[in-house]
Amino acid sequence: MDLNLAGKTALITGSSDGIGLAVAKGLAAEGVRVLINGRHTEKVEAAIADIGDAAAPAVGDVASVEGLDAVLGAVEAAGGVDILINNAGTGSNETIMEAPDEKWQQYWDLHVMAAVRLARGVVPYMEARGGGVVLNNASICAVQPLWYEPIYNVTKAALMMFSRTLATELVGRNIRVNCINPGLVQTPDWVNTAKELTRDTGGDWQGYLQGVADEYAPIKRFSSPEELADFFVFLCSDRASYSIGSTYFVDGGMKLTV
């Protein structure tokens, strides 16, 4: 299937590893020039070396105004982008009663305001090119929360609503906005967490992850980042031209409601 993506340029936040890196590789394989974002120069450079000539750096912490300005500088240097994928994010661990305001603000800036500010920064480039695509990576936790990460649940729910609202605002400018809510994806964060939790009990981190999959996912396994990336790549393409303002669950049957 020809996705008609060759020659386009994409910015993928949080793309030095995990889901973001898999999406960047998937787009690069379709002939897209990819701007690799992360907070650490060495990780970004390693990802670029992995991808090859199709990749360029966009180093900066998108949760901060200063870091985001640096990323938008890379967008300007690239002549703009056709695709924006807001992927940067991380899980949390707290209770509502005990989490301080500062932690709420940190996650709000990372999961919501980064997407808001990047949209303001890149939409003019998309308009000048005749259109574009914005994809926001939220989470199944936006609608089916896990008890131990209330801040993550709330900010991902806000990102999902932001996606729907932005889609309405931009549809007349030929810019498609959609949201993806993944379930269990075996990212480096999940692996590191599993190794930490099993360090003193034999180190069977694979068994720990299998237990999580058995409990939450009817498919009884985690997705690979590459499986999820294929869905992102498709939604970036003209083959998904009628998909606007939607939220797609890629969760192995994890969501329990219709």
Results as ranks from 00 to 15, higher is better:
Asp82Trp: 13
Ser64Gln: 09
Pro100Arg: 02
Ala55Arg: 06
Ile140Glu: 08
Met126Cys: 05
Asp50Glu: 11
Val44Ile: 11
Ala74Cys: 10
Leu68Tyr: 09
Ala70Gln: 14
Ala54Asn: 08
Glu30Ala: 12
Val34Ile: 04
Ile85Glu: 04
Leu72Gly: 07
Ala74Asp: 06
Ala70Ile: 11
Thr90Ala: 14
Gly121Ile: 06
Val122Asn: 06
Glu42Met: 05
Pro100His: 02
Leu118Glu: 04
Ala115Leu: 08
Asn137Gln: 06
Ala115Cys: 12
Ala115Met: 12
Ala46Gln: 03
Glu66Lys: 09
Gly121Tyr: 11
Glu42Thr: 13
Glu94Cys: 13
Ala56Phe: 10
Ala99Met: 11
Arg117Trp: 10
Lys25Val: 04
Glu102Asn: 13
Asn137Trp: 06
Ala114Gly: 04
Leu27His: 05
Gly38Ala: 11
Ile36Met: 04
Glu30Phe: 02
Asn93Phe: 15
Ala78Glu: 09
Ala24Gly: 00
Ala55Cys: 12
Ser64Asp: 14
Val133Pro: 00
Gly67Val: 00
Ile51Asn: 02
Val71Phe: 02
Ala47Thr: 03
Ile51Met: 03
Pro57Leu: 05
Asn37Arg: 08
Glu45Arg: 12
Leu68Cys: 12
Leu135Pro: 02
Glu45Ala: 09
Ala114Glu: 01
Ala47Gln: 02
Ser139Asp: 03
Gly132Ala: 06
Leu27Pro: 01
Glu76Tyr: 03
Val81Lys: 09
Glu30Pro: 11
Val133Met: 10
Gly121Met: 05
Gln106Glu: 15
Gly132Glu: 01
Asp50Ile: 01
Tyr107Ser: 10
Val116Glu: 14
Ile83Gln: 00
Trp104Leu: 09
Ile48Gln: 09
Ala24His: 01
His111Lys: 04
Leu110His: 05
Ile48Asp: 03
Ala74Gln: 09
Asn136Lys: 01
Ala56Cys: 11
Glu66Ser: 14
Ala119Lys: 12
Trp104Val: 06
Gly31Gln: 00
Ala88Met: 05
Asp50Met: 07
Leu68Ile: 12
Ile96Phe: 08
Ala46Asp: 10
Ala128Met: 07
Asp109Phe: 05
Asn87Thr: 03
Ala114Met: 05
Ala54Glu: 10
Val62Cys: 06
